[in-house]
Design a protein around this nucleic acid. Structure first.
Length: 419
RNA sequence: AGUGUAGCAGGCAUA
């Protein structure tokens, strides 16, 4: 049983879901461990419908599942953004008298980030605490981050009080987490207050802390303050890391400030700690800056620069480029770029495919666009809702309504809900 | 035995 479970887990992490099922069936061991690992594998491979099916089979087999089984399923729903199912599963768990634990809380929190579901999160927090479970610092930090994100300052203060009564002293990470929550809330400037509190308590700020501050200035469209913050960081002896630079470039792009984006990129090049090593992520950020300015040539130059530096582009690189082609009226360049992508051994994902379909549609290549589905399947990729939706739009724009219907019918057979 | 846990980018949908 242990071996079967371990194999399923290993294969699931590798994305080899069919092998997981094979091992499960052939292993002949059916208990809560093998079942739970199988569900987990389905979730990791984004095959929620199979996860649900396995969960149903547990019951039919008369096996009692435990907290972990529910946690794994909840995580699956959370990743799919299906919040109602998250809480339905949670309630089912309580009904069956399976006790939620720290993992449950943390999983629910992850599911609720970016959604305004703080009441529900607080309820789970209360349930778990009522069980007498002592929570660790990471879980508290996680919880605080969601609360700040939703602007629930008072609730966050209550949680900090709970933390202290559990003898967990808020540390630098706690404060940084609070800042991050606020930066993404409706009131990014609150992050600065937290930063000041932190300084007063004498807690050290690290690269994450300063990067959050930089992001805050970006959100407030204060680019020069963001750069000043970067200078302070360096002066205080906190070495910026790659994410700091990426953030700097990104906020300039958001603010439509190409000059500063280039400046941030130059700063990175000069950083002795990074030794001139520039990742695909960073190059892509710079490309976005040019793309936003409709400077496709310059964006393509960045691609050349990557080749020269022997940095392999990734799927983001190409989706950014292709999207820029659509937006800047250069969709005719797409097939060339696509070939270049394949040549550099980048395996396109659904997002790159969707963007490519947009390009093909814009240049009236309906046939090619429709052929994309087969191309994806040949690669063992399951087209997602975005691919189908875009393809249908392209058909309609091309005046072929029948083809659009066809696409939507296929979408239904693929187990997707139509939106 | 198994699940979660501080900062970054792309299409579609959603507001």
């Amino acid at each position: 049983s242990r071996k079967v479970s371990a194999d399923i887990r290993y294969l699931g992490k590798k994305g080899r879901l069919d092998d997981c099922f094979r091992v499960f069936e052939q292993g002949g061991v059916r208990n809560k461990y093998t079942y739970t690992n199988l569900i987990d594998a389905c979730v990791r491979c984004n095959q929620l419908h199979r996860a649900k099916e396995v969960f149903r089979r547990i019951r039919e087999d008369g096996i009692v599942c435990d907290t972990t089984t529910y946690n794994v399923l909840i995580r699956g729903y959370g990743r799919a953004g299906r919040l109602r199912d998250v809480f339905d599963t949670y309630n089912m768990m309580l009904q069956h008298e399976v006790r939620p634990d720290e993992f449950t809380l943390s999983t629910v929190i992850s599911a609720c980030v970016h959604k305004n579901m703080t009441e529900e999160v607080l309820r789970v927090f209360k349930d778990v605490r009522d069980q007498g479970v002592l929570l660790g610092r990471p879980t508290y930090n996680h919880l605080l981050s969601v609360l700040c994100h939703s602007g629930r300052v008072a609730a966050a203060q209550d949680v900090i009080a709970c933390m202290r009564s559990d003898k967990i002293i808020p540390d630098s990470n706690t404060f940084t987490t609070l800042m991050n929550g606020f930066v993404r809330s409706a009131h990014p400037e609150k992050a600065l207050e937290v930063f000041n509190d932190m300084q007063q308590l004498g807690l050290p700020a690290n690269a994450v802390t300063y990067t959050s501050l930089i992001l805050m200035y970006g959100r407030l469209r204060k680019i020069s303050e963001a750069f000043a913050c970067f200078d302070t960081m360096v002066r205080e002896g906190v070495p910026p890391d790659e994410i700091t630079y990426n953030t700097l470039v990104d906020i300039c792009v958001e603010a439509n400030d190409l000059d500063h984006a280039v400046k941030a990129f130059e700063l990175l090049k000069k950083d002795p700690n990074l030794q001139g090593k520039i990742s695909a992520r960073t190059f892509t950020a710079l490309m976005r800056a040019y793309c936003q300015d409709h400077r496709i040539d310059d964006a393509l130059n960045v691609l050349d620069e990557m080749d020269k530096a022997e940095v392999k582009p990734n799927t983001h690189t190409y989706s950014v480029l292709l999207e820029a082609c659509v937006r800047s009226g250069h969709a005719q360049l797409a097939p060339q770029i696509w070939e270049r992508m394949l040549k550099s051994q980048v395996t396109p994902d659904s997002i790159v495919y969707t963007t490519y379909i947009k390009c093909l549609g814009k240049t009236g290549k309906l046939e090619e666009a429709l052929a994309v589905i087969e191309d994806m399947q040949k690669r063992g990729l399951r087209p997602d809702e975005g691919v189908f939706t875009t393809l249908a739009e392209v058909c309609i724009a091309g005046g072929d309504v029948a083809a659009a219907h066809n696409v939507l019918n296929r979408l239904q057979t693929q187990n997707f809900r139509r939106t």
